[in-house]
Nucleic acid binder design. Structure first.
Lengths: 253, 253
DNA sequence: CGACGCGTTGAATGTTGTCAAACCGAGTGG
DNA sequence: CCACTCGGTTTGACAACATTCAACGCGTCG
């Protein structure tokens, strides 16, 4: 569960050899995302050792599962391209979207304390991911303190982002919730070196509504209102942030 | 963060020597709550070893902190008597109550992945607690697999109860939220051998409202409505559940 | 072309929040 | 002993906000 909070720090213009992010044969060293998903403190040969345990699969199709509820927990995942959403299902079968994950972000840690996943993860669009087997990661962590620290930080972030979502749902209006989500996605895009002003939302209105505890119609209306007020330009999933400050004021209320 | 989900299993009518729960000199072996807060699989001498690392303090006064936000994380805690609430505060200073803890329940695990607490814990009434230094607990866990498993289960429960709260806030009405909380407290009282029908709510209406994302007035109105409909008898904090089934239907909607 | 998924918009409804007033029980101090 | 305050709770009237239901537009895909 992330999305509202912002992922790890540091942007290093690592390599000139920029390959297609869907490409499965790329290594951690060359990956465009490595400054986001890797601990910054790793030395070159440490990255190499991590690289050896990372498994890169063929790209996932839209709507296909990375893991499903009750699947055995065996790995955590990094988004290399595309985007992923996670959701849980309660006893009554109600679905709750719990997070959106963009390239460079890590997901799937909900199973660490369990033996099985308590949520599911699906691709919102064609996506490629890195699978990091957790048992190997644990071994590796023992000899690489910086890696261990990095993962503790990631787990922390998951927990605090849960609490942020709870507060958002419990205390904020529809406009405030949507503004907060937009700013979060904007900031995360900026961190990846993309524009924080113009970007494409990977998720549907229904996903946004489910995540924020709103109906599709309300989400749509908020977008329209923001556009009318000159805060945004909205064209389906394409967003242009016009008045960042106004959005921030909304989000910080 | 707990409250909606129910804590550990098994009730064993352990001892005849029932002492005052505020009494600090009681040992884990004799504690009335041990069937709730201890892993059931522990042998007698294992309980003794756990007992040796548990620190029992003087009773806490109402509104006094067990730990505060940003305090160093050093221990987890078990409620021996009274009750505890936890809350977090976001960047804008908004307080979100994140859990209510009754005797026999464990809290303070939010700091495990961090070095410092990301939430605060205060006594809602006079309470006594057991402090379990985490470093010692980790050592002990190595030689006691059943203890380790128990704590993993507790951590899992924290995470899933977060997700349950998120779903509750995001998808349920005021009545459904209140019904769910009441049933949770009822069930937890029953598990402690107390009545699940007549009990005293330890928290204020304001705390309930904050936790459930409602105003005090709404909480009060829902209680009144439930009473009018013959689901409850309410007298300030004293609750009598009259129609459990109707409450359950509300909670499961 | 027609069906379908997705998004938008309008009108009506209903739930929850806001504001204000009053109540109640427990202390407190005159 | 009584009047007083104070915090927590309840209740009412009203307004605001979000949902519901319905219709429609638009693009894609069979």
């Amino acid at each position: 569960m992330t999305a509202i909070s912002e992922p790890s720090d540091l942007s290093r213009n690592s390599t000139m050899t920029v390959a297609c992010p869907h490409n499965a044969s790329i290594s951690c060293t060359d990956c465009r995302m490595n400054s986001l998903c890797l601990p910054i403190a790793l030395e070159y040969d440490e990255v190499e050792r991590l690289n050896e345990i990372v498994q890169r699969g063929r790209p996932l199709q839209k709507d296909s599962h990375v893991y499903d509820i009750a699947d055995e927990f065996s790995a955590v995942y990094a988004v290399r391209s595309g985007s992923i959403k996670t959701y849980s299902v309660n006893e009554q079968g109600v679905i709750q979207v719990t997070g959106f994950y963009l390239p460079g972000e890590i997901f799937g840690m909900d199973g660490i304390a369990h033996t099985h996943h308590v949520s599911a993860a699906v691709a919102m669009e064609t996506a490629s991911i890195c699978e990091i087997p957790f048992s190997r990661l644990e071994e590796l962590s023992i000899t690489m303190p910086s890696l261990q620290r990095h993962f503790f930080k990631l787990m922390s972030k998951e927990i605090t982002s849960d609490q942020q979502l709870i507060t958002l749902l419990s205390k904020n209006s529809a406009e405030e919730r949507v503004a907060t989500l937009l700013l979060s996605i904007s900031a995360r895009n900026a961190k990846r070196g993309l524009s924080g002003i113009r970007f494409r939302l990977p998720m549907s209105r229904a996903d946004i509504g489910n995540y924020l505890g709103l109906t599709v119609e309300t989400v749509s209306r908020v977008f329209s209102r923001f556009q009318k007020q000159g805060l945004l330009n909205v064209d389906k999933k394409e967003i242009e942030v016009v008045d960042t400050l106004a959005l921030q004021e909304l989000a910080n209320t």
